[in-house]
Simulated assay, not measured.
Amino acid sequence: MKALIETMIEPLVDHPEAIKISEKEEMNKIVYHLQVHEDDVGKVIGKNGRIAKSIRTVVYAAGMKSDKKIYLDIM
């Protein structure tokens, strides 16, 4: 899942080396924390959050095979 997130984010940002994805697994959910360079946050979120929503939709769809709920936090 980390590779999928990174593949989607890299073309959007100016500082791909600053992409950090951490994973926190709990009983019934997996939370992915995405950190990007402070100059790239707006590019990842997009106008009115449209890009962030699209990224989350793809990640959630890819996680449908899992028994756990998938969450993506963008920082």
Rank of each mutant, 00 (worst) to 15 (best):
N48V: 11
A3M: 03
V36G: 03
E23H: 06
M64E: 13
L72W: 12
K68N: 12
K53C: 02
E23M: 09
D40I: 05
N28W: 11
L12I: 07
E6L: 05
I9R: 02
I45R: 14
T7P: 00
L4F: 08
H33Y: 09
G42W: 04
S54N: 11
D40R: 05
A62D: 06
I21Q: 09
L4S: 06
R56E: 13
I30Q: 01
Y32H: 08
A52Y: 04
H37E: 12
S66F: 01
I55N: 02
H15R: 07
S54Y: 08
S66I: 03
Y60A: 14
M64P: 01
A52L: 07
D39S: 15
H15M: 07
I70T: 14
H37R: 03
V41A: 04
I51Y: 05
K24E: 14
I5M: 10
I74M: 01
M64T: 10
A18C: 05
K69T: 15
D73K: 11
Y32D: 10
M27Y: 11
I51T: 14
H33E: 14
V13Q: 00
D73G: 00
I55V: 14
V44S: 01
I74S: 06
D67W: 11
I19L: 04
I5F: 05
D39M: 13
V36Y: 00
N48I: 06
V58G: 06
K53F: 07
I74K: 00
A18I: 03
R50N: 15
A3Q: 11
E25R: 12
T57I: 03
V59W: 01
S54P: 05
